[in-house]
Write a protein that binds this DNA or RNA. Structure first.
Length: 852
RNA sequence: GCCGAAGUGGCGGAAUUGGUAGACGCGUCGGAUUCAAAAUCCGAUUCUCGCAAGAGAGUGUGGGUUCGAUUCCCACCUUCGGUACCA
């Protein structure tokens, strides 16, 4: 009987399902006493397209680790769920007028089927979906906590409005003036929206990054996004007016070089200080600047514009007049919305000064060019600066800050780039806000005991004709609320962004069916933090920053008994980003793509089979339009789930971007077949003749190699080096299948090593060989260190750093003897040509280098 | 521009407290088995020169440190990701 994954895989999946093999106990008493391991995948958005082979890469890695840790005796928490609110389902709903819940259910069912077909050891009893009312009840509950702590507020704010989607977007969702997901342009609008005060946590979000084991790049991205900078806030008086404004600067040392000031177009002071002569020009400038969308502002980056307000500021030190301009290179959203311009030492101010012929005064010497030509932003010695002259930049910063504080004209200060999180969306398929609005503009939150506020039925899923969000289509029965005290209000018609549900799902997995509270204290205490979190790097800022923020808020919130809602400062102790999986695509000269099955290779070049036309091949992101998407379904059909799992990990290091090559699956498939044949006689279907009942030690060489293999696989798994772990098992298999006799104990332990990687095959062989119980619940083999040490070592002999020979020497041979052996070596003598060695270097266990 | 990651055979990739470059796999070539094929098994496979033994070159480029560099240092090139008037 041959290796037939199509038969054994569904069989074992059914066994695991029926026996609930991977169910994690909910009994705290039972859990205690064993160490825990919480290994989490970023849960997917269940799209209509189903999985492609990129999805299971991370899932396979976490599954191998979950199975490995279980075999090592850990209580393992390994759940899966659905981030199921969101745009694609809503769009489909709009188009076909089907409830998005119906579309979502179909997609989730398909995703679950695909994920299950890979034999992952999830505890399906803990499956959650952000769209179920049982779940979003608690999302709303957390929102109430945010309101309670004054971290959620409504404000008239300039928002990113996306006309194509008819909704607002968060800063994090917009790049270069377009929505990052769809590329639709975004424009500025002022709207009254819910905001979350993430800026109140900027400091902790920044500093606690030091305590987590995350890729340095991701930490850096978050640091950059939070954007801390240290500097000073300086007050400027306006001449002939009872007005003043502050500026933030990181270069207080250059204050004496300030030759003008600039306010952002949105700065409130403009209407008070602009002189009548300049009024018209300024008003017009403000209006034009307001109309520019983000894209235009980006495009016009280089070309700075501005208008003189006619007003002058009094320089806080020299008390000389400096003109006040308005310019849209100054952002209202950062710092004070105003800058002191020092053209000699700031590139932007320099460009602006050149354009409008404003004076440029050098105050830091040491630039390569004259400051009239280019700004000198580097270090140097202060000049033209009164009491700062002669100091270097950092000393001058200190001195100036001290002077400003003494004279009450400024103080040390810091700023964050991070802005509050815009939390409203004008969509249907999201969590409703538990909020009731009244005619007078006030609002109240819905009491906890009335949660969840469920999504109402609506006739259509698009905005109303007068531009209100889809929830405004719900009837008065849902919209209008009468409170016990007789007041009448109207429900909020915005919904929360998709990020809301994913901000805390890792906590719901701990206790997914709890109807009294979002999670129990005991479960949280036992399982948190997440020990390993695996997902794509695309969430480096958005999801991971938002989730950390909510987690910290929950850390600050108390239960009735005074304990914290979560016990850890950070949710995800270790983060790992799997690399993207790319695929080959084939395109002709006209740019038309061809499916891999339509092309053929000849002498390293590719041609369309039908026409013989040449095509270019390139490695690109998988996408429908490039016809290069590989579905796990087709791979499993052809090779089985075990081969699919193995190839996902054998391709290369998990964190690396790498191309999918279906031909590469052949290699791992052959490996699995050979493992099968190692144990099973294909003719009879019985256990192979060569498998003997003798002790492992009776085949000494093979046993030694096997113990080295155990060690290698174990160390590699601990370091998430799956590809080299698989290579080590292949190496062992090559030796084992060449051996005439294979002691059964070795074979049984080898199958345990294979288990986490190819669990179906391993269960089947384990059962056929008479293993006890399921291999999924068996112990991990231990290596014997003694057997991993060789008695003789291969030593390389070099002459002048070049390898000339290698010899076998006993492991404990003294250095001197090795040296003698090397110097007497025939090949060494040939290359030393009779010359006296100048130096001989002996590296024990490695090599001897003879220098002449 | 700034920040981060990475450049190794025909291909995916191994090897880093500085010590045999190319593990393992794909592909290719040769052989066995077969009436034939598939499958399977065995062998070869960095490049150049050579019948061979062997020699030389070689980890993006150019320098440097060292007995010895894929690994450390300096400069540069390329690719990918992030970010972009943040004062």
């Amino acid at each position: 009987m041959r290796y037939q994954p199509a038969q054994i895989e569904p069989k074992w999946q059914q066994v695991w399902d029926e026996q609930k093999t991977f169910k994690t106990s909910t009994d705290m008493a039972e859990l205690k006493g064993k160490p825990k391991y919480y290994v989490l995948d970023m849960f997917p958005y269940p799209s209509g397209a189903g999985l492609h082979v990129g999805h299971p890469e991370g899932y396979t890695a976490t599954d191998v680790l979950a199975r490995y840790k279980r075999m090592l005796g850990f209580n393992v928490l390994h759940p899966m769920g659905w981030d199921a609110f969101g745009l694609p389902a809503e769009r489909a709903a709009m188009r076909d007028n089907i409830h998005p819940a119906v579309i979502t259910k179909t997609n989730v069912d398909n995703f679950r089927r695909q994920i299950k077909s890979l034999g992952f050891s999830y505890d399906w009893d803990r499956e959650v979906s952000t769209t179920s009312a049982d779940y979003y009840k608690w999302t709303q509950w957390i929102f109430l906590k945010l309101v309670e702590k004054d971290l959620a507020y409504m404000a008239e704010v300039p928002v990113n409005w996306c006309p194509a989607l008819k909704t607002v977007l968060a800063n994090e969702e917009v790049k270069d003036g377009v929505y990052v997901e769809t590329g639709d342009p975004v424009e500025k609008r002022v709207m009254k929206q819910w905001m979350l005060k993430i800026t109140a946590y900027a400091d902790r979000l920044l500093h606690d990054l030091d305590d987590v084991d995350w890729p340095e790049g991701v930490k850096e991205m978050q640091r950059n996004w939070i954007g801390y900078s240290l500097g000073a806030k300086i007050q400027f008086e306006v001449e002939n007016a009872q007005a003043q404004f502050g500026v933030f600067t990181t270069r207080a040392d250059t204050l004496m070089g300030c030759t003008y000031c600039c306010l952002a177009p949105e700065h409130p002071l403009l209407k008070d200080i602009t002189t009548p002569q300049q009024r018209e020009a300024v008003d017009q400038y403000i209006q034009t600047a307001g109309q520019k969308d983000a894209l235009q502002r980006t495009d016009l980056e280089k070309d700075k514009t501005g208008v003189f307000t006619g007003a002058y500021a009094i320089h806080p030190v020299t008390e000389k007049k400096v003109p006040i301009w308005v310019a849209d290179y100054v952002l209202m959203s950062y710092g004070e919305g105003a800058v002191m311009a020092v053209p000699a030492h700031d590139e932007r101010d320099h460009a602006f000064a050149l354009k409008y012929d404003l004076p440029i005064v050098e105050v830091v010497s040491g630039g390569e060019k004259s400051v009239q030509e280019a700004a000198h932003t580097g270090n140097g010695t202060l000049v033209n600066s009164d009491f700062l002259n002669g100091l270097d930049v950092s000393a001058a910063k200190e001195r100036m800050a001290a002077w400003l504080e003494e004279h009450s004209r400024g103080e040390k200060s810091h700023n964050y780039k991070l802005r509050d999180w815009l939390f409203s969306r004008q969509r249907y398929w999201g969590e409703p806000f538990p909020v009731i609005h009244f005619d007078d503009g006030s609002y109240e939150t819905v009491p906890v005991d009335q949660l969840p506020v469920e999504l109402p039925a609506v006739d259509e899923y698009k905005p109303t004709d007068d531009g209100r969000p889809p929830l405004a289509r719900a009837g008065d029965e849902w919209l209008m609320v009468e409170l016990p005290d007789g007041r009448k209000g109207m429900r909020e018609t915005n919904t929360m962004p998709q990020w809301a549900g994913s901000c805390w799902y890792y906590l719901r997995y701990l206790d997914p069916t709890n109807s009294e509270e979002p999670w129990s204290k005991e479960a949280e205490n036992y399982w948190m933090p997440v020990d390993l979190y695996v997902g794509g790097v695309e969430h480096a800022v958005l999801h991971l920053l938002y989730a950390r923020f909510w987690h910290k808020v929950l850390y600050d919130c108390q239960r009735e008994d005074g304990s914290r809602w979560v016990s850890t400062k950070e949710p995800f102790q270790k983060l790992f980003n799997q690399g993207m999986i790319l695929a080959y695509s084939y395109r002709d000269a006209r740019g038309k793509y061809y499916h891999p099955s339509e092309v053929e290779e000849k002498d390293g070049k590719w041609f369309v089979q039908a026409s013989g036309e040449p095509v270019e091949t390139q490695i690109e992101k998988m996408s429908k339009s490039r016809l290069n998407v590989v579905s796990p379904d087709e791979v499993i059909e052809q090779y089985g789930a075990d081969a699919m799992r193995l190839y996902e990990l054998f391709m290369g290091p998990l964190d690396q971007t790498k191309p999918w090559q279906t031909s590469g699956v052949d290699g791992v498939y052959r490996f699995l077949q050979r493992v099968w044949r190692l144990a099973i006689d294909e003719e009879s279907g019985e256990v192979s003749q060569r498998v003997t009942d003798e002790a492992a030690a009776s085949q000494a060489d093979l046993n030694k190699l096997f113990h080295k293999t155990i060690k290698k696989v174990t160390v590699d798994l601990d370091n998430m080096r799956f590809n080299t772990a698989i290579a080590a098992m292949m190496t062992f298999l090559n030796e084992a299948s060449a051996a005439e006799r294979l002691p059964k104990p070795i074979l049984m332990d080898f199958i345990r090593l294979v288990g986490p990687f190819a669990p179906h095959l391993a269960e089947e062989l384990w059962a056929r060989l008479g293993g006890e119980g399921l291999i999924s619940l068996a112990d991990w083999p231990q290596h014997d260190e003694q057997l991993c040490i060789d008695d003789t070592i291969k030593m390389v002999l070099q002459v002048n750093g070049k390898k000339r020979d290698e010899i076998d020497v006993p492991r404990d041979m003294p250095k001197g003897e090795i040296e003698q052996l090397a110097l007497g070596n025939e090949r060494v003598l040939k290359f030393t040509e009779g010359k006296e060695p100048r130096r001989v270097i002996v590296v024990p266990g490695r090599l001897v280098n003879v220098v002449v």
